[in-house]
Simulated assay, not measured.
Amino acid sequence: MATAPVLDPPTGRRPLPDIEPDRAGTGERVLIGLFTGVPFLALFAAVPMAWGNFLGWVDIALMAVFYLVTAAGITVGYHRHFTHSSFKAKRPLRIALAVAGSMAIEGPVINWVADHRRHHKYSDKEGDPHSPWRFGNDWKALTKGMFWAHYGWLFDGARTSKRRFAPDLLADRDIVRVQRWFPALVAASFLLPALLGGLLTWSWQGALTALFWAGLVRITLVHHVTWSVNSICHTFGKEHFEARDKSRNVWWLAIPSLGESWHNLHHADPTCARHGVLKGQVDISARIIWAFEKLGWATAVRWPNQERLAAKRVG
């Protein structure tokens, strides 16, 4: 006997599928490997080059600035604003956050949001695009799963449906434009540090070292810190709040992740604008949102509710 299709209760219509019918092709996977692998290779050269004349204060300053801007583009922009609507942003800030997140080279904004919303819908269960528990819970399966959650899932040909998981962003013409600009923003993420390095030192060497440190090295650091939230923060750490998955808090990732590694609270209360809510839990992204609010650029910020936190507290 044929099974009747599942209907979406609010509308009575067939729900859209989670996955788009077309899969990522070989060319797209090659580009993913190129733009994630080449910056990673720079790490092998970073230590010997730092001992020579290939690292100066201009390089350090530019790397720090571009790291903060692009990492916050992911944490404050892609994650807390676009994915979870933790705050409303004035139109110039909204566009700037989409641009900054794109320059982290983790994918176009609408794709990233769709993937992350699907992750929350199925967190650590079948359907989660990057759970480390995908293959089981013994040490061999978990080792394989952590690699999958950290990096391997990027090469999965399945594409999350943007129409199902991000219709609000597809309806935003400005964000769709930023989505289309993604290749140009990838180029800018490399070229801007080189240009500034060259101008600040007035030399070709300054441009080259800035490209290396504030371009290649910075990008791979942002990548692997972000992906560590997928892998490490769903495997190790402490559980301070009740969540329906295996999300955990990892204190030593808090500063490089700008507060994203307080991941247990995030999964317990996904729309909360602050993830580090307990004493001593540094959350740089929350401070950035606080500054935006004070400047009048962000409104309707969903700050922690003490009663809701107390109800979810464990231990």
Score class of each variant (00 low, 15 high):
residue 7 L to K: 05
residue 179 Q to Y: 09
residue 9 P to F: 03
residue 276 G to A: 08
residue 280 G to Y: 07
residue 91 R to E: 11
residue 306 Q to M: 12
residue 142 L to T: 13
residue 228 S to C: 06
residue 176 V to K: 05
residue 190 F to A: 03
residue 163 R to N: 10
residue 296 G to V: 10
residue 303 W to G: 07
residue 31 L to D: 06
residue 315 G to H: 10
residue 231 S to F: 02
residue 259 G to R: 01
residue 252 W to I: 14
residue 81 H to D: 01
residue 229 V to T: 07
residue 238 K to D: 13
residue 281 Q to P: 02
residue 64 A to H: 06
residue 37 G to W: 13
residue 82 F to G: 06
residue 223 H to A: 07
residue 102 S to Q: 02
residue 193 P to G: 05
residue 98 A to R: 01
residue 301 V to I: 06
residue 6 V to K: 15
residue 280 G to F: 10
residue 152 G to H: 03
residue 175 I to E: 00
residue 28 E to L: 12
residue 58 V to S: 12
residue 19 I to F: 09
residue 233 C to T: 07
residue 170 L to C: 03
residue 292 F to R: 00
residue 8 D to I: 02
residue 151 Y to K: 01
residue 269 D to T: 13
residue 153 W to P: 05
residue 135 F to L: 11
residue 93 L to W: 07
residue 212 F to M: 09
residue 30 V to I: 15
residue 154 L to N: 08
residue 71 A to T: 11
residue 34 L to M: 14
residue 210 A to F: 06
residue 9 P to A: 09
residue 21 P to E: 05
residue 292 F to Q: 00
residue 280 G to C: 12
residue 135 F to P: 04
residue 16 L to M: 03
residue 234 H to F: 04
residue 132 P to Q: 11
residue 273 A to I: 07
residue 116 H to I: 07
residue 147 F to Y: 15
residue 103 M to D: 04
residue 246 K to H: 15
residue 215 G to E: 06
residue 166 A to V: 04
residue 96 A to I: 06
residue 298 A to N: 03
residue 185 L to G: 03
residue 248 R to E: 06
residue 63 M to Q: 12
residue 121 K to C: 13
residue 99 V to F: 10
residue 69 V to P: 01
residue 184 A to G: 14
residue 116 H to K: 05
residue 289 I to P: 01
residue 267 H to S: 04
residue 299 T to W: 01
residue 95 I to D: 00
residue 313 R to F: 02
residue 205 Q to D: 10
residue 251 W to F: 12
residue 28 E to D: 11
residue 150 H to A: 07
residue 204 W to T: 12
residue 11 T to R: 06
residue 60 I to L: 15
residue 227 W to G: 02
residue 89 A to G: 01
residue 245 D to H: 09
residue 255 I to E: 05
residue 97 L to W: 00
residue 63 M to W: 11
residue 161 S to T: 03
residue 70 T to H: 11
residue 14 R to W: 01
residue 48 P to C: 12
residue 68 L to M: 14
residue 20 E to P: 00
residue 71 A to I: 07
